[in-house]
């Protein structure tokens, strides 16, 4: 085989490999965007709340926010995401709250249920509430990249540091990967 044939064959092989990869990813992964657009997102099943979403984002205040899957929430009085583990009184006193910025709000619904909402302006994506809720509750609080805030960098600086590779590019059509539904039915379907 002369050099020209070798280069030609190698080129064909690379092209064929690319075609096979593309076809395989369409068939097996089914995570190809129809519009061809992709965004960064966190897989909540892989996230271990390491705190780096808070410190590694290029934005001054992280584009990662805690979101609440109301479908999964137990509306508990003793909420592991809201209260410090050693809290003595289940009230809204700052000394009882787990969130370092007070972004998680607790509202009485009816005895003995409480609704928890996130003030996204205050949330710094530290993940403490997510850890507490996942450890002691139903895991309804989860970290997600908010696409109205994310700059969709070519290389996500949080993803580079994520110890569990929980952040990946996903098709824009499935931009949020939260477990359950995070639309509050009480807000979206008011009776």
């Amino acid at each position: 085989m002369n050099r020209k044939t070798f280069i030609n064959n190698s080129g064909r092989l690379i092209l064929l490999g690319g075609l096979v990869y593309l076809t395989g990813s369409i068939i097996f992964k089914r995570k190809v965007s129809a519009s061809g657009k992709y965004v960064w997102q966190i897989d909540p099943f892989k996230c271990m709340q390491c705190g780096r979403c808070s410190t590694q984002c290029v934005r001054e205040i992280s584009a990662v926010k805690c979101v609440h899957a109301y479908q999964l929430c137990g509306y508990c009085d003793l909420c592991g995401g809201y209260f410090k583990p050693n809290t003595h009184k289940l009230n809204t006193g700052a000394e009882s709250q787990l969130c370092p910025t007070g972004a998680l709000k607790r509202k009485y619904v009816e005895e003995p249920f409480f609704e928890y909402k996130i003030d996204e302006k205050l949330c710094n994506a530290c993940g403490k509430c997510v850890k507490g809720c996942g450890s002691f509750g139903n895991g309804s609080l989860q970290l997600q990249i908010r696409h109205d805030l994310c700059q969709n960098c070519n290389e996500c600086s949080i993803a580079r540091m994520c110890p569990t590779n929980a952040i990946s590019r996903v098709p824009i059509e499935a931009a949020y990967q939260i477990k359950g539904d995070f639309k509050n039915p009480a807000l979206t379907n008011p009776k």
């Binding site: 705190g51 808070s54 410190t55 583990p85 370092p100 993940g127 403490k128």
Partner: peptide, 11 residues
């Protein structure tokens, strides 16, 4: 070499 979690949740 990664920094410790400044927001560690511990029980």
């Amino acid at each position: 070499k990664r920094p410790d979690n400044p927001y560690e949740y511990t029980v």
